[in-house]
Nucleic acid binder design. Structure first.
Length: 423
RNA sequence: GGUGAGGUGGGUGAGUGGCUUAAACCACCAGUUUGCUAAACUGACGAACGGGAAACUGUUCCGGGGGUUCGAAUCCCCCCCUCACCGCCA
């Protein structure tokens, strides 16, 4: 959620930035400002009356204490009248504030000025291309056929147990996936991220904190009996560690990494493009999160992007980096890079990481602040990224490294798997 | 699930109707001392929102919601959560 104080101060700039998403920034901001002005007038009116009422009650108290009981009683009527007036005024102010918040909740984050204009994925900017397409023989198989051939991932079994989108990893497939997780966590540790194991179920407050609620309620699995949500990403529990917190400037930057399964309903997305590991209801992911000082956040975004790319390079994957355009960016993000790996047998790019700077959009909801050098509280900036999401990495590795003899395990993973071939 | 105790500022924790403008201690911050760190001492120190160029000032907030009262952290009702013990159990 955008900060109202910031909108007052930088109305024009923010309107222009919203327009990068292809929205009517100017009229939206104008609407907010108009409502805000009305609300403040109401608030002033209410507070003046409250002040008057407070003075009166202390007067009455004084009179009682000095024995002027009758004089005190005489003022009670006036006090009661003020109280009556206040009742409706307070309700008006609350309703006014509520409707302003409702309006603000509909406004997405303001893209950074470097974000390209555009509405569709075609308008995303390819900022980097690394490596080359692997040269596969004509008999190359897509990963779901490889999974069956070597009996390492069983999609049918998952359907029996749960439903589509819940695969069962078996034998070397299971070990391979565990090796990747371990590799990613160790790399994150080396890069200075503190590992955390958060809960996989979160309450509604946490959902609101990172912005999954109320907009994306339908994307999360909900346990009705206990009113808890299965996390769609570790971003939710990890970022919410810092909800309602005032940090010390010296604690920043905070760098956390965590591995969790992720659960997504993905309602309405079926068909060929969700085949195999391409889109699942349950998948594993290592997530990195940073809470930083505002002036450093864009530098940190570049660092995180480089870090994620380093993982892809160590795995020897052909990938590209996209700077998402305004229209394709998530609601809460100010600037996002997507990393896509080349899936050689499917001959298409698969998104395997998304690294974003949220500026104060999340921290405003989270009330995640730090005490700056002037001793004032200030909202921190939050960022996160996948490092990495497992299924599409597994898919790309299986497809790109396939040979007639089997699937070659990347060298960096061998210490974790204990074998160098899946065959 | 049963019984009991409790939720107060960054933390510990006092506070049973108006001098609470929330004590005290700790932490954080600034300064003095100091080769450096530490210790000691001194000082400042809750948050959000509004008004004001600023100094400053107003309002709200003691788990959440309602109520009693001229006046509520304090009394009453409902809800939520935490802790302890018991039961069940990986």
């Amino acid at each position: 959620m955008l900060q109202i104080a910031n909108i007052r101060k930088n109305a024009e700039e923010l309107a222009a930035r919203i327009a990068i998403r292809g929205l009517e920034g100017k009229s939206l901001i104008a609407q907010v400002l108009e409502m805000d002005e009305k609300n403040r007038a109401k608030r002033t009116e209410m507070e003046t009356l409250q002040s008057k009422g407070n003075q009166l009650t202390s007067q009455i108290g004084e009179m009682y204490k000095s024995g002027q009981r009758e004089a005190g009683d005489a003022l009670k009527a006036e006090s009661a009248e003020i109280k009556e007036q206040l009742k409706s005024l307070e309700m008006e102010v609350e309703a006014a504030d509520q409707s302003l918040v409702q309006l603000l909740l509909t406004i997405p984050n303001t893209p950074s000025t470097e974000v390209p204009m555009g509405k569709t994925p075609e308008d995303n900017l390819e900022v980097l291309l690394w490596g080359n397409k692997p040269d596969l023989s004509a008999q190359s198989l897509p990963h779901w056929e490889l999974a069956a051939k070597y009996d390492i991932i069983d999609f049918e079994l998952g359907v029996k147990l749960t439903g589509a989108g819940f695969p069962v990893y078996k034998g070397k497939g299971s070990i391979f996936q565990r090796a990747l997780i371990q590799f990613f966590l160790n790399e994150a540790g080396k890069a200075g991220y503190m590992e955390v194991q958060p809960p996989l179920l979160v309450n509604a407050d946490s959902g609101y904190g990172t912005g999954q609620l109320p907009d994306k309620e339908g994307q999360m699995y909900h346990c009705g009996v206990d009113d808890l949500y299965l996390i769609p990403t570790a971003e939710v529990p990890i970022t919410n560690l810092y909800r309602d917190v005032i940090l010390n400037e010296s604690q920043l930057p905070i760098k956390n990494a965590g591995y969790t399964p992720c659960f997504r309903r993905e309602a309405g997305s079926y068909g060929a493009h969700v085949r195999g590991l391409n889109r699942l209801h349950q998948f594993d992911k290592v997530e990195i999160v940073q809470i930083v000082k505002p002036e450093t956040s864009y530098g940190v975004l570049e660092d995180m992007s480089k870090y994620v790319q380093g993982l892809l390079q160590k795995l020897g994957l052909h990938y590209r980096v996209l700077l998402l355009c305004g229209g394709d960016m998530g609601f809460t993000s100010a600037k996002t890079y997507d990393m896509e790996v080349w899936s050689a047998a499917q001959e298409k790019w698969l998104e395997c990481s998304s690294v974003s700077n949220f500026e104060t959009f999340q921290t405003n909801r989270l009330k995640c602040r730090f005490r700056n050098s002037e001793g004032k509280t200030e909202l921190a900036h939050s960022l996160n990224g996948s490092a990495l999401a497992l299924p599409r990495i597994v898919a790309a590795l299986l497809e790109n490294n396939q040979t007639p003899e089997g699937i070659k395990v990347p060298d960096v993973l061998v210490p974790y798997t204990g074998f160098d071939w899946i065959n």
